[in-house]
Amino acid sequence: MPAARRDAFIDLDAYDRLCETAEEGERLEYIDGRVFRMMVGGSTAHHALTRRLDGLVAERLAPGGPCASFRETMRLEAGTARFYPDVFVSCRGDIAPDPDTRSVASATVIIEVLSPSTEAYDRGRKWLAYQALPDLRHFVLVAQDQRRIEAYHREGAGWRYELLQAPDAVLRLDAVAVHLRLDAIYAVVPMLATASDDRPFSVPFGPAQVAGIAGLKGLDVSGAIEKLLTEMDAEECAAAVAALVGLADLPPEESWRAVLPQRLHRGLDEALRGML
């Protein structure tokens, strides 16, 4: 998790002043009045993948079209939040090269290369904030320690989750007419360039993280439901998070039924009755 600065719960003007005095290589992100300190770069694999993804996307965007790609030094405005995605595509159509331009207020595609210190942040609070972007159509998480890409594609009022690991897998960003083979993406990481990797993957989520994200989604995590969450294993927690971030506007009981595994539905019914 990125470190939150002590200047907690500040307004956007104060955040902008902090950015003006930020150290070289430091990125300050802003969510719900709090500032999070990020660092540009990271591991050599992270740097190589970020540069590679930006290059592949940029060269496939329609020449002269409305879309442009940006890397981690360009700020993205998502409502009142401010972020520095590793790679993103904006199709606003009126972004001209300008040395004074420091931020963009629209994104159609966002790509984050995962790091151990920021993975939970990227998957949780940050992804929830990204969903407020009306133009966003694809959100992509790229692993740097194995050939694994996860993508969320907007479909109607919700999101479809996709896991890509196969040697011939293709990441399809249809909203910008860009298709990327995993082989092409991972060619810059020698140890992952040719090996297929179908190992089960782990994500840093447990019952507490599921409860926290459910709370951010506006769901009531009562004592009875919280107890049900503690009965979930790591794989079920990962599935629950994927379900939570893709939830459309459903009644709470339907939302919990979509999030909790089938084996806990009887306990859910009892918990919901107790909440009435």
Rank of each mutant, 00 (worst) to 15 (best):
residue 82 R to M: 07
residue 68 A to S: 14
residue 259 V to C: 05
residue 44 T to N: 05
residue 198 D to C: 01
residue 145 D to G: 03
residue 58 A to E: 09
residue 116 P to E: 15
residue 184 A to N: 03
residue 148 R to H: 13
residue 155 E to G: 01
residue 131 Q to R: 15
residue 2 P to M: 09
residue 28 L to A: 08
residue 92 R to N: 14
residue 81 A to P: 09
residue 192 L to T: 06
residue 204 P to Q: 10
residue 102 R to I: 15
residue 224 A to E: 13
residue 144 Q to S: 14
residue 143 A to S: 12
residue 133 L to A: 08
residue 166 A to E: 14
residue 230 T to H: 12
residue 1 M to F: 08
residue 14 A to C: 10
residue 240 A to T: 12
residue 51 R to A: 12
residue 54 D to K: 07
residue 188 V to C: 10
residue 169 A to V: 11
residue 210 V to A: 05
residue 29 E to N: 08
residue 153 H to L: 09
residue 68 A to F: 00
residue 267 G to W: 03
residue 107 A to F: 04
residue 105 A to F: 03
residue 26 E to G: 02
residue 39 M to C: 05
residue 30 Y to D: 13
residue 219 L to S: 06
residue 111 I to M: 07
residue 58 A to T: 13
residue 48 A to G: 04
residue 121 Y to L: 12
residue 33 G to P: 12
residue 76 L to W: 09
residue 12 L to R: 15
residue 242 A to N: 03
residue 272 L to A: 11
residue 18 L to H: 06
residue 20 E to K: 08
residue 162 E to I: 04
residue 109 V to E: 12
residue 113 V to R: 08
residue 75 R to N: 11
residue 125 R to L: 08
residue 213 I to A: 07
residue 124 G to C: 02
residue 166 A to Y: 00
residue 168 D to T: 04
residue 165 Q to Y: 00
residue 229 L to E: 03
residue 233 D to L: 06
residue 57 V to N: 03
residue 23 E to M: 06
residue 20 E to C: 11
